[in-house]
Each structure stands twice: as structure tokens, then as C-alpha cells.
């Protein structure tokens, strides 16, 4: 196996997409997407509406099958048959706070369907144990919730998002977390809370994060690397440290201008 262009070795790459293409009838959503995601890395994916971001996410999570191209998970080619299949192989998605049950406490949500039980087949809830474990886990990843007994409906949007992320990261065998606009509709404090959480989880737990966001400022705070998708292709792949907000903005504006120009020339 060959080393990657930036010098890191292949085995660090958790997810690799090669030549992914997908069309819906006459609409070409993805032409030829090549990207990779390293272990413990936060990768931001930006692009205009209709550039193919959401299609890409749906392919990675097993919702769509690509028409062409290959996906590699830990170096092995994978073909997800369903979202459940992708989850079994370690790809979790956080859809805002939709995955939480508002009526249940924080710790019951964290343990939902993976409850600690006693009493054998009667499956009595070991609430004290779950409470303590939830407390310890949330302390460890520095999610600040006054009480794990609180029903999640009483939490703020940011806290709910934090619980959703924390829960997804707790799933056994999780390798990649997909975050779709994780900072949407959040205040400044909540935004920094989630940014810290996501970065911390990526670093400490080695979970790779794939973040879709429109807000470049957020991406610069959150991500290690950014990929720009335009017209179904990855047109820019840069480490955040090697680029700047103005460079990214210029790049987007320029390519947008050239598209418009080409459109005029052609039409």
C-alpha cells in the first residue's frame, strides 16, 4: 500500500471513498468523489446547496448505495446494505436531538436499549449503576449536566445535542460519527461547548468525525481538515492549519464566478 500524499500511512485512514458517483434520474448528485478520513480526525465538508454533501452523507451512512466507486472502512472494502448495516460496522449518525426520547432521563437516554440490568431474564433496570456510569462518562468527556436524572426535554438545545453526541460515541465499536450541522441554531456558549466536546471525543476516543456545515467560522473552530464539494467532486482538500477563512471564501467565490461565467459562455 502506498503512502498518502501528505505522508501519513494508509492504516491510519478509517474511511476512504474512491470515485463515488451517484445519480438520481437525470440529476447527477456525485460525479467522482475521493476523500479520506483519518482516525480521530474531524473532517469538515462544505459546499453549496446541491453540491452533493447530503448525498455523500447518505452513502456513507448506508442510506443510498453508490452507482460507482468504492468505500473502504479500515482498509477493507465495504458495501452497506442499510443504515443498520453501516451502524453495525461502526458508523453512527447524530441527527440533531431527534434520537433522544424527551420523556426519559439523561442516563436512560444514554443507555437506551443497552441498559444495565439485573435479575437475569426479568431484566430489572440497574438504575443506580447506570446513573453512576452516566455521571462518570459525562464527567470524563466534560459534558456539564446538572443531574443525569433530568428528563432531556428540560435541557437546552446544546445540552441535548451534547447528549446525542455522547450517546452515539458510547455505542460499542463506533469508528465514525456523522454530524449534520451540529451547531445549527445554537448560542455562542453552546457552540463552544459542542466544539470542545466533538474535538475532545475525536482526540481522546479516536472517533473520527465527518461534519457537514454551512458556517465556515464554525468549521474553522471545529475541524482539523476541510473538503470542499462542488458539482459532485471534491475540489479542495486542506488542513485547517494550512488555510484561512479568507482563502476558503475566495476559493468558493472564484469557482462560483467561473461557473457563472462558463454558464454564460455556454448559453
Amino acid at each position: 500500500m502506498s503512502p498518502l500524499s501528505d505522508g501519513s500511512s494508509v492504516d491510519e485512514v478509517v474511511l476512504r471513498a474512491e470515485g463515488i458517483a451517484k445519480r438520481f434520474g437525470a440529476v447527477v448528485a456525485l460525479r467522482d468523489v475521493n476523500l479520506h478520513l483519518r482516525r480521530g480526525e474531524v473532517l469538515g465538508v462544505v459546499g453549496d446547496n446541491g453540491a452533493g454533501k447530503s448525498t455523500l452523507v447518505k452513502i456513507v451512512t448506508g442510506y443510498h448505495a453508490p452507482d460507482r466507486g468504492r468505500l473502504f472502512l479500515d482498509g477493507k472494502e465495504v458495501r452497506f446494505r442499510s443504515v443498520q448495516d453501516a451502524r453495525r460496522q461502526g458508523i453512527e449518525t447524530v441527527f440533531q436531538d431527534l434520537a433522544l426520547v424527551n420523556e426519559l432521563s439523561v442516563y436512560h437516554n444514554l443507555f437506551l436499549n443497552r441498559e444495565a440490568t439485573r435479575g437475569g431474564r426479568l431484566r430489572f433496570l440497574a438504575n443506580r449503576q447506570m446513573r453512576a456510569q452516566a455521571r462518570r462518562y459525562l464527567d470524563e468527556i466534560e459534558v456539564d449536566i446538572p443531574s443525569v436524572d433530568t428528563p432531556v426535554e428540560k435541557l437546552s438545545g446544546g445540552q441535548r445535542q451534547a447528549i446525542a453526541v455522547a450517546r452515539a460515541t458510547r455505542q460499542p465499536g463506533v469508528k465514525i460519527l456523522l454530524l449534520d450541522e451540529p451547531l445549527a441554531a445554537m448560542g455562542a456558549k453552546e457552540t463552544s461547548l459542542i466544539i470542545q466536546l466533538v474535538k475532545g471525543l475525536a482526540r481522546q476516543r479516536g472517533v473520527s468525525m465527518l461534519v457537514i456545515d454551512h458556517n465556515y467560522t464554525h468549521l474553522f473552530e471545529l475541524c482539523d481538515r476541510v473538503n470542499v464539494i462542488q458539482q459532485g467532486r471534491v475540489t479542495l482538500d486542506k488542513a485547517i492549519a494550512e488555510t484561512s477563512l479568507s482563502e476558503l471564501t475566495d476559493f468558493m467565490v472564484q469557482s462560483y464566478r467561473s461557473q457563472v461565467g462558463r454558464g454564460r459562455a455556454g448559453g
Binding site: L98, A99, L100, V101, N102, E103, L104, H108, L112, N113, E115, T117, L122, R123, F124, L125
Partner: peptide, 16 residues
């Protein structure tokens, strides 16, 4: 019991 918890979860947010 887990059954009770899952019942509340199902009634509260079936998709989740």
C-alpha cells in the same frame, strides 16, 4: 424493567 422503559421510549419517540 427494560420492558417498561422501552414502552415509554416507544411512546415518547418511536423513531428514536
Amino acid at each position: 424493567t427494560t420492558f417498561g422503559l422501552h414502552t415509554v421510549a416507544t411512546g415518547g419517540n418511536e423513531v428514536a
